[in-house]
Each structure stands twice: as C-alpha cells, then as structure tokens.
Computed example of a mutant assay.
Amino acid sequence: MFSEKANRIFQSVIETYHVKDDVDQEFKNPFDKKETLIEHLLYRKCWIDTVQWHYEDLIRDPEISPEDALKLKRKIDASNQDRTDTVEFIDSYFLDLFNTIEPKLKAKINTESPAWGIDRLSILALKIYHMNEEANRTNASEKHQIACKAKLDVLLEQQRDLSLAIDQLLEDIKVGDKYMKVYKQMKMYNDDEMNPVLRSKQ
C-alpha cells in the first residue's frame, strides 16, 4: 500500500532529523529524484514539515528578540511556500501516473487531492513522534504522561484512518471511480503585484 511506504519514509525523516535536532542542519535526500521521484518528494516534504515544526517551537519563545522573531517569521514564510510547492509536485506525480485512466461515467471527485491528504499524513507523523515523547517523558508528571498517552492513541487511530483513506482514494482513481482535479493554491501574500504592502514598495 502507498501509505505504508509514505509512513515509513516519514518516520525515517523524523528520526534522522532528531539525531542532530537542529533546524540549520544540512538536508540530504537519500532518494534519487530521477530514479525514485515519489520517494524523493515524500522525503523532502516531511523534512520541510519537520524543520518548520521546530521553527514554530522556537518562535514561541517568550524571550525571543524582535529581530530574531522577524528572521524566523521570514523562514516560516519561505518554508510554507516550499511546503505548498512540494505538495503540488506530488500531485503532479499522481496526475502523470494516472493520465491514461479514463474516469467512469459516474466517477466522483474528492474533497482534496491525494497530495493534500499526504500532507496531513506527514504532519500526523510529527504529532505522533512528539506526543510519544511527551507520553514517555520521565521528568513529566504521571497525569501529564497519562493524558499524552490518551492523545497518542487517538493520533495513531487517526493515522490508520487517514492512511486507509489515501490508499482507497488512489485505488478509486486507478480504477476510474474517482478522478483527480488539481487547483494551484494561488497564494497572494507572496506576490509583489497582489499583496498591497509589497506592491506599494515597488
């Protein structure tokens, strides 16, 4: 199943990141873009999410200086754009994969594309990793550990359900029961012409 491969890659990314646990560490993708494109994209996608997860931790430091906060906000903005671009690359992969499939006459469209489901699966892998840390943190109270364990159980159930839903969606597209239709995100706040603040600076 596709989701099994995705979840394995996400777990590998998160564990690799936490060896150094440093947002500025060098990124190395073990998957060749030409030979294993989807694996390459999945690895990159989860790495972006993992670094941004820790950006979000850092920027919530109540003692962070305004200068450092602004620099970090710029990094988060760039990361968000990179995340969106990578999701769209993943959808392009699936559009190409299924480009010869003729949807059935009564084929239905899904509320989200495969890649945006995969995006949520990557974030879930991060939630599970960090909730597991909290559930087993020895310097936390027993009450905290119990509460986090209950949350972890819910996250694991959610991961199973989302994994199944993604696999079912891909299979439905493959046999023509559903069809893909992808819309670009068309974010406006990074556009020099559409963002009135940026436009006024030209």
Score class of each variant (00 low, 15 high):
K75M: 05
D49N: 14
L70T: 08
C46S: 12
E67P: 01
R60H: 13
W47L: 01
I76W: 07
L58A: 12
V51K: 09
V51R: 06
I48R: 00
E63S: 10
E56F: 06
D49R: 02
K75Q: 11
L72V: 04
I76F: 06
L58N: 05
K71W: 01
N80L: 12
P66F: 15
V51Q: 01
D77R: 05
S79G: 11
Y55A: 10
Q81Y: 10
E56Q: 14
L72I: 08
Y55W: 09
H54A: 07
I76V: 14
Q52H: 07
R60Q: 14
T50D: 06
Q81S: 09
I48T: 01
I59D: 03
E63M: 10
D77C: 08
E56S: 13
D57H: 14
S79F: 00
D57W: 14
L58S: 13
E56L: 15
V51A: 00
K71Q: 06
W47S: 07
R60E: 15
K73G: 12
Q81T: 09
Q81P: 00
N80D: 07
H54N: 15
D77K: 08
S65K: 04
W53C: 07
P66C: 14
D61F: 03
R74E: 02
H54V: 07
W47A: 08
N80P: 00
R60S: 12
V51L: 03
I59A: 05
E56T: 05
E67H: 11
R60P: 02
I64S: 04
H54I: 02
A78G: 02
K71R: 11
E63C: 04
N80E: 09
P66Q: 11
N80T: 11
L58P: 02
W53R: 15
S79N: 02
W53I: 03
D68N: 13
D61Y: 12
L70R: 10
D49Q: 12
W53D: 08
P66W: 09
W53N: 13
V51F: 02
K75F: 01
H54R: 11
D49E: 08
S65R: 05
P66N: 12
P62Y: 15
K73E: 15
L72C: 10
K71E: 03
D57F: 12
K73I: 13
E67S: 08
A78H: 04
I64H: 04
D68I: 02
E67M: 10
Q52C: 10
I48Y: 01
R74V: 03
D49V: 10
Q81D: 12
E67F: 03
